[in-house]
């Protein structure tokens, strides 16, 4: 049951997401959790997946709401809302 890959919100990105997820999950369990990682790996898979996702965020109209949320609760603030 854990071996079915989850889909991307953009169907055209699902395959690239699958490749990235696989790489990431292996890295997470085998290196990160064991404290063996010094860098965020899977960069090749990541950039291919991201290229697809970034484009789809725009074409599917998700970008504006996302940008708003990023201002309100920045990544750099661990997703905590900043005071208005």
């Amino acid at each position: 049951m854990g071996n079915v890959m989850s889909a991307s919100f953009a169907p055209e990105c699902t395959e690239l997401k699958g490749k990235y997820d696989k790489c990431f999950n292996d890295w997470y369990s085998e290196k990160f959790l064991k404290g063996l990682s010094v860098e965020n790996e899977c960069q090749t898979e990541w950039y291919e997946y991201m290229e697809c996702v970034q484009a789809s965020l725009v074409t599917q109209g998700v970008k504006p709401a996302l940008d708003e949320a990023r201002k309100e609760a920045p990544f750099e603030n661990d997703g905590k809302p900043v005071d208005p």
Binding site: S8, F9, K17, F24, G35, S37, V38, Y49
Partner: peptide, 13 residues
Amino acid sequence: AVDVLRRELDTTG
């Protein structure tokens, strides 16, 4: 669907 949009590891790993 679930997508990762950004992911960063700090310098200490």
